[in-house]
Amino acid sequence: MTHNQRLHPQAGLSLPETMLATLLLSVSVLGLLNYYQSLTQGFSRQWQVRQAWTEAHEQLESFAVLNVGKALDKPGWSAQITRIQTSTDCQWVTARVETPLHYTSRLSRMICRPIVD
């Protein structure tokens, strides 16, 4: 053993320590990736919920003006308008919109036509 080796013993990590550190790092990264995936899915669901309510409102507005619902141009989305005649001038209209993640929004409104003299 040389004089230099006695003064400065060799320091570093052994193979088992390195493998353990690598294992802990990979488990941490997998946990973060899982968290990121669930966060992304949550944002996607939240966006679809907000869009579904907006689309249902637009369906009712379109029906009130044109007497027909608005055409949806989003793949995987569906919209349906149902109406129940309550009197000669009024009807109860319900707009139902379903998203690709199967979230359904439903809005209803009473629509009455103006009486013309």
Rank of each mutant, 00 (worst) to 15 (best):
W47R: 14
L20F: 02
V49D: 07
Y103N: 15
D73Y: 07
V65H: 05
Y35T: 13
D73A: 08
F63S: 01
L66K: 09
L66F: 09
F43P: 02
Q41R: 12
L66I: 02
T86E: 13
S44I: 08
W77M: 05
G69Y: 04
E58Y: 07
A52V: 04
T86S: 11
A56W: 04
V97T: 12
Q80M: 07
Q51K: 06
Q91L: 13
L24I: 10
Y103S: 14
T104M: 12
T22V: 11
T88R: 06
T22H: 00
L33S: 12
L66H: 10
H102Q: 15
T18C: 06
C90G: 09
A64C: 02
A21M: 02
Q85D: 07
V29A: 14
A21S: 11
T99H: 12
V49K: 12
Q41P: 03
A52W: 04
L101S: 15
Q41N: 12
Y35A: 13
S26E: 00
V49N: 08
E98H: 10
G76F: 06
R83C: 03
H57S: 11
R96V: 13
A64T: 07
L72N: 05
T40E: 08
Q46S: 15
E98Y: 07
T86M: 08
L24D: 03
G31K: 05
T88L: 08
S62Q: 06
G76E: 04
Q41V: 09
G69I: 04
R96L: 13
R50E: 10
Q59R: 02
V27P: 03
L25W: 03
V68G: 00
R96G: 09
S78C: 01
S38G: 07
A52T: 03
W92Q: 14
L25S: 09
Q37G: 10
E61L: 08
R50Y: 02
L23R: 00
T22A: 13
